[in-house]
Design a protein around this nucleic acid. Structure first.
Lengths: 188, 188, 188, 188
DNA sequence: TGTTAAGCGAGACGGTACGTCGCGTCTTAAT
DNA sequence: ATTAAGACGCGACGTACCGTCTCGCTTAACA
């Protein structure tokens, strides 16, 4: 019966939030700055988001995005293609910061834990598919544990790129994929 | 005539800081809370630490600790032993949070970047030694790239434990080590 | 062609407004509280009243009420009877608060000044009549200044009851009336 | 052991508060405006005053001021002199507004009630003295009730000046004093 | 007897001020 | 000279109301 919350306002807020995040970083992120920049009243922001942290996380919704599942015909090719999609995103410092923030905050805040879960699940799908395809082709043993495999696959990239903050060039990507596929094939 | 800065005070502050970190998490970490809890005046804290973030990080100094280098006679044994040391530390939620915080903050704050570097280096030493020993035994090819290998080794554990927050039991530890050693041996 | 504004709604608003005034006082008086309590939408309230202050004042319309003019045959009797009517109204704390609020606000808001004027005038009529009757009976000199007399009559009661917030019992009422009549008779 | 609250800051705040009151009236009175104008931080204001209302009332402390007790040798002279002191103060619209605000708020807020009490008591002293002197000179009966007399004296002036907002010129002052003294002498 | 403009509830919106909290700096008295 | 205590300027927080504005739905007067 009442006026619906304006999706336009919500979007303007999210856009401004992303801009602020990019410009000032996580530490300089402020609801009042977002309000000023978006031209939306602070009270309206609080009508759409329970608090500043949630707003920041929502602004980072892009982290929880769908990745395409490649199908190149070989395990190595699929893994290289998939990581080729994921790596650029992890390279954006704002996203990296936010992602780590999500992981850290998930320990205490249940709402953030949910985002964390979604973020993790989103990347699981393609990996499972890639593994299944490889099993179908006979490249991998049928009883390979998917849970362990996904950490074995993602871990090295995550470690190098986001934790150690080193670049991953084309050669490194291929070398890591080679190590990973060799390891996976040895399963059992 | 002057009183030296009491080391006792510094230590009480650090202890209180760790307690606060553990109880309230990174978000609830506050200089004033640490002051109240430690019974030390805020001004004294600022005499010992340049600002609240540095205090928090110093309280996390334990993360930058020396790990013993195992020597069990086999690559698998050494890796299992090493990770057996590292994993319990990563399991402490306060340390985990802090570590992620360090990684995130390193992007902007050069002082934290230094801590980040030390934290990373501390773990590198034992890994290099383990790899060198394995090369000496002929378990690994001589030209194995240490930089890539260390991400390939640590990454899966880090991913599973700290990012995905799943337990790593004895069996999982051994399975991951098996995958890793198989991968490493395939180098070249 | 259009629907007329529902008098029922207006009345429900006024009732709720008076209730809110009585319960929370002038400071706790809020349009939104009145809306919630009355079950009437805020927009409807603003359709009937230009703003919150006006609503509050309208809710106090009862202060601007007609008082009967007594005629007991003597000045003392008339004054006692008149104040006997007025005092109970001044005793209602909500009305008292509101009345003071009107006086205070009249200084700045011309609309409230109008209410203030009406409020004052309403009480003037009976007093003039009482004085005229007394003059007719020869109890008071013909040239008694009505303007001064009305302050001389009302002032002591107002001061004691509304400003000093002390009770006025039967005896006090009679004593004050005696002082007043004696004073008035001395005019000239 | 700690730094004492700076009396200078408190005074600057009060000065600014009075200025704001005078310029914008009670409605435009805002803690943030006072902060900005005084150059004192909002948090400091809240360190000195529990809330904005209390600040406003403290700024009106001048209302609770000591009045000199005249001694002209006659009751009429004393009353004229005393009201000659009081009337100019009641004429300041800011003070008048505030005074009514104090009376109104005293009903609900115990702290304001205390101010109200002090405000009332401050004026009682001189009046009692004036009455006692008159009794000593034989101008008034010994058994005159002071409580009733004080309302009888102050009431008319208060009513005319602050409630009805009419001027009190020299002639009116004398006429009212004449009525009052005549009334008082009739006691008993 | 429909039509239709206004009333109405609900509540979103842009604002302003609130009172609180934490920061990092400072001043004071005591040790 | 260092410490405990805490005041200070600053600035963000999240809340409460303000008065205005869309929304659909309902309803009484006109056509």
């Amino acid at each position: 019966m009442a006026r619906p919350r304006s999706e336009a306002a919500r979007q303007r807020v999210l856009d401004a939030a992303q801009a602020v995040l990019g410009e000032t970083g996580v530490d300089g992120f402020t609801v009042e700055r977002v309000a000023k920049r978006s031209g939306v009243a602070k009270s309206t922001i609080y009508r759409h988001f329970p608090n500043g942290n949630q707003l920041m996380l929502s602004a980072l919704g892009c982290v929880v995005q769908t990745f395409p599942t490649p199908n190149t015909g070989s395990l190595s090719g699929d893994l290289e293609a998939f990581m080729g999609h994921v790596l650029p995103i992890m390279s954006d410092p704002a996203i990296a910061q936010a992602m780590l923030g999500v992981v850290a905050a998930a320990a205490t805040d249940p709402e953030i834990a949910e985002i964390h879960r979604a973020m993790m699940a989103e990347r699981l799908g393609p990996i499972v598919t890639i593994l299944d395809l490889a099993k179908g082709r006979g490249e991998l043993p049928q009883d390979l544990d998917t849970g362990i495999a996904r950490d074995f696959i993602e871990g090295p990239f995550f470690m190098r790129k986001m934790i150690r903050c080193e670049v991953i060039d084309e050669a490194t990507l291929r070398q890591l994929v080679a190590l990973i596929t060799a390891g996976l094939r040895s399963w059992g």
